[in-house]
C-alpha cells in the first residue's frame, strides 16, 4: 500500500511501500507538481528502482523550469538506496532524525 497527498504544511506526504505496483499512482500525482516541493518520507517504509525512476523523471522535468524536489525524513534503508543510486548528488535529501 502506498499513499501520497499534500499535508497541512504544504509538504507532500508519502507513506507505505513505493514498489513497481504503485508507480502509476505515484507518477500521476508527480505529474501535477509544477514548482519546488518537499517530499516528506517520514511514513515511507520502502522504495525500489521503480520509485527511483519516478523521482528522477520528475526532478528532470522540474529542473527545466528551475524548480526541484527536496526529500526529507528519509529512513536509513531508503537513504542507502539513494546513496547507492547516486541520488544524493542530484536531490537535496535529509535523513530522518533517530
Amino acid at each position: 500500500m502506498f499513499e501520497i497527498d499534500y499535508g497541512d504544511d504544504g509538504k507532500i506526504k508519502c507513506s507505505g511501500r513505493l514498489d513497481a505496483s504503485q508507480c502509476e499512482k505515484a507518477q500521476s500525482f508527480m505529474d501535477d507538481i509544477a514548482d519546488t516541493r518537499t517530499l516528506d518520507f517520514s511514513g515511507l517504509e520502502y522504495i525500489s528502482s521503480a520509485g527511483l525512476g519516478i523521482l528522477l523523471k520528475t526532478q528532470k522535468r522540474l529542473a527545466e523550469s528551475g524548480a526541484a524536489l527536496k526529500i526529507t525524513n528519509v529512513n536509513n534503508h531508503i537513504y542507502d538506496v539513494f546513496r547507492y543510486s547516486g541520488f544524493n548528488a542530484i536531490f537535496d535529501i535529509k535523513a530522518k532524525e533517530q
Partner: peptide
Amino acid sequence: PLAERTPGGLGLHL
C-alpha cells in the same frame, strides 16, 4: 549530472 541521468539499470545496480 541530472540532465544526463536515466533510470536504466538501477534495479540491477541496487
